[in-house]
Amino acid sequence: MSRRRRNAESGPAATNAAVFGEVLRHFREAAGLTQEELSNKIPCDRSQVARVEAGTRVPQESFAKQCDELLRTGGAAAAMGADRLVPGGAASGLVRAAGGDGCEGPRCP
């Protein structure tokens, strides 16, 4: 059985994946987690988190939901799941739309 890879190399998927990656990195850093720590909690390989954050891998919906629960994104990650990514949007606008600055981790004021 072959596994189909879902990469975002060009076109709208690339833009969507880049926006999701930017939002994911924001929430992960706000939670005070490294890529390795987040990958251990999901669980997945650290390189998958790195590729999603870099915008070169379109996240599966299950990955987005796990990130939403672990990082307490207020629904931002799940709302941006693989089939619902917003083309060309700014990550900062999505973070604000999700209910604030997303800062709920140990490093937040």
Rank of each mutant, 00 (worst) to 15 (best):
P87N: 07
A76T: 14
A90I: 05
A14Y: 06
P59F: 03
L38S: 05
R28P: 06
N7F: 05
G100S: 01
D45C: 01
T56W: 09
L24T: 04
P12S: 09
A8W: 00
G105V: 03
R72S: 03
Q60N: 11
A91Y: 00
Q35Y: 06
A97L: 14
L94M: 12
R6T: 12
K65P: 00
T56G: 13
R4H: 04
G100A: 02
S92K: 10
P109K: 03
A77W: 01
R28K: 08
F63A: 00
A30I: 00
R28Y: 08
A18W: 08
R25D: 11
A76V: 15
P43H: 06
A30H: 03
Q48D: 12
A50S: 15
V52E: 11
V52T: 15
E36K: 10
G21P: 11
R107A: 13
P59Y: 01
A30E: 10
M80G: 03
Q60C: 05
F63I: 01
S47L: 13
A54W: 02
L33R: 14
E9R: 15
S10R: 15
L24W: 03
F20Y: 12
A78L: 04
G55L: 04
P59I: 08
G102L: 05
G105W: 02
A91N: 00
P87F: 05
V52G: 08
G74K: 05
A76N: 03
M80C: 05
A78D: 02
A17T: 05
A82L: 09
E36I: 08
M1Y: 08
N7D: 08
R28A: 07
I42T: 11
E9Q: 14
R4V: 12
P59R: 02
A77S: 10
N40P: 00
R25Y: 10
T56H: 12
G75K: 09
A79E: 11
S47N: 15
G88R: 10
G89R: 09
Q35A: 14
A18C: 11
V49Y: 07
G105L: 01
G11K: 12
G11D: 14
Q60V: 06
S2Y: 02
R107Q: 09
Q66K: 12
E69T: 14
P87G: 08
L85F: 07
F63L: 04
E36G: 07
A77M: 15
F20T: 04
G21R: 11
G99S: 04
F63H: 01
R107L: 15
E37V: 12
S92G: 08
R96T: 07
A18Q: 15
Q48S: 09
R3D: 11
F20I: 05
P109A: 06
V49G: 07
P87A: 07
R57K: 14
K65N: 02
E61G: 11
C103I: 06
H26T: 04
F27H: 10
K65F: 01
A77I: 03
A30P: 00
K41V: 02
Q60G: 13
A50E: 02
Q66I: 00
Q60E: 14
R3E: 13
P59K: 01
R5A: 13
A91M: 00
A18D: 13
K65D: 03
E9C: 09
A50T: 07
A64F: 01
E36P: 01
G89W: 07
G81P: 00
T34L: 07
G89I: 13
L33D: 08
V52C: 13
G89K: 10
C67G: 08
S62D: 13
E9I: 14
T56F: 09
M1T: 13
D101I: 09
M1E: 12
E9M: 14
G89Q: 09
